[in-house]
Design a protein around this nucleic acid. Structure first.
Length: 110
DNA sequence: CGTCCAAGGCGTCAACGCGA
DNA sequence: TCGCGTTGACGCCTTGGACG
């Protein structure tokens, strides 16, 4: 597995709608290009070239957009997991506190 | 070892929403 | 209406672990 590990500990209360970003990370790997564009058939060569070029450009942009989208999604999930952990801790603490208060109250009544 | 399987990443397509 | 960015869905590939 070769996963670019980006650690983001954003204290967890980060509410993210539409995948908000906590830590900016940017990397632009190599560009893989596929050939073939349907629109280039039966067209003058220069038009076909232009069509192909536009397609390549679109594919390249979308490739990087997809990467970025996945990165944001992962980060979003990580934030949510952090939040869950914090809330669970909070919940445990509150339960303990409640128990302690109940104890105190019971001893007073007796 | 070799095989199988699950998990994760990637590229592409299609659909959608938004601003010009 | 058009062009563009975003994202879900799909299929493919790679990798690591379990098992015989």
């Amino acid at each position: 597995m070769a996963v670019a590990g980006d650690e983001t500990e954003s204290a967890s209360t980060g509410e993210m709608s539409g995948y908000q970003i906590c830590t900016p990370t940017s990397s632009l790997p190599q560009g893989v290009v596929m050939a073939g564009s349907p629109g280039s058939l039966h067209s003058p060569p220069h038009v076909a070239d232009e069509t192909t070029r536009k397609r390549q450009l679109r594919l390249m942009k979308n490739r990087e957009a997809a990467r970025e989208c996945r990165r944001k999604k992962k980060e979003y999930v990580k934030c949510l997991e952090n939040r869950v952990a914090v809330l669970e801790n909070q919940n445990r603490t509150l339960i303990e506190e409640l128990k302690a208060l109940k104890d105190i109250y019971c001893h007073k009544v007796e």
